[in-house]
Simulated assay, not measured.
Amino acid sequence: MTERRLLLVNGPNLNLLGTRQPEIYGATTLAQIEQMVVDVAGGLGFSVRAVQSNHEGVLIDAIHAARDDCRGIVINPGAFTHTSVAIADALSAVELPVAEVHLSNVHRREPFRHHSYVSAVAEMVIAGAGPLGYEYAVRYLAGGLG
């Protein structure tokens, strides 16, 4: 049986959280979000491997690697949400449950942000809940994975 581990994936520009457009994304840093995910997952009996990259291939490689030692994936693909069939294909190929998270409510923003390639392969999608969206995603996945 695969270890009780979740993969946390954050896409491009999310390394700038806390300083990048705080009126949209808030003041919470990526390090704070990652720590919150580790804490919540740990309380539910799961460990976490976190990856953030501005490079699509790095994210795809991390998703592929999750197939060997993770039970689910929490992903905020950032701008790749709206452009990356490759990330959606990778998520589909690894056959793990996926929770898609967006800090802002993408449906209240520019029209190009209304479409997600990832949503079609995700078990659930959370948008607009800020950092709490990550906690909800972890709790959802952990609940389904037992």
Rank of each mutant, 00 (worst) to 15 (best):
T2H: 09
E3S: 13
R5Y: 08
L6I: 14
L6E: 06
L7G: 02
L8F: 13
L8C: 04
V9M: 05
V9P: 02
N10P: 04
N10T: 12
G11T: 12
G11H: 15
G11C: 13
N15T: 04
L16V: 01
L16I: 01
L16T: 02
L17C: 03
T19F: 08
R20F: 01
R20P: 02
R20A: 04
P22Y: 05
I24H: 05
G26E: 11
T29H: 10
A31F: 09
Q32S: 15
I33V: 14
V38E: 15
D39V: 08
A41N: 07
A41G: 09
G42V: 14
G43T: 01
G45E: 14
S47E: 15
V48S: 11
R49P: 05
R49L: 14
V51I: 10
V51N: 00
Q52G: 07
S53W: 12
S53N: 02
E56W: 07
E56V: 01
L59C: 02
I60L: 07
A62Q: 09
A66H: 11
D68W: 13
D68I: 09
R71V: 13
V74T: 03
I75C: 05
I75D: 04
N76E: 03
N76M: 04
F80A: 00
T83I: 06
S84A: 03
S84N: 05
I87R: 03
I87E: 01
I87M: 04
A93C: 00
A93W: 00
E95Q: 14
L96M: 11
P97I: 00
V98I: 09
V98N: 05
A99P: 01
E100L: 08
H102T: 06
S104E: 14
V106L: 09
V106E: 07
H107C: 06
R108K: 15
R108P: 05
R113G: 13
R113W: 10
S116R: 04
S116D: 05
Y117F: 07
Y117P: 00
V118I: 12
S119A: 15
S119Y: 03
V121S: 06
A122K: 10
E123M: 09
M124Q: 04
V125E: 15
V125C: 15
I126A: 13
G128R: 04
G128A: 07
G128N: 09
A129E: 13
G130F: 06
L132P: 00
G133D: 11
Y134T: 09
Y134D: 10
E135K: 15
Y136M: 15
Y136H: 15
A137T: 06
Y140V: 03
L141S: 01
A142N: 04
G143F: 12
G143T: 08
G144H: 11
G144L: 13
G146K: 00
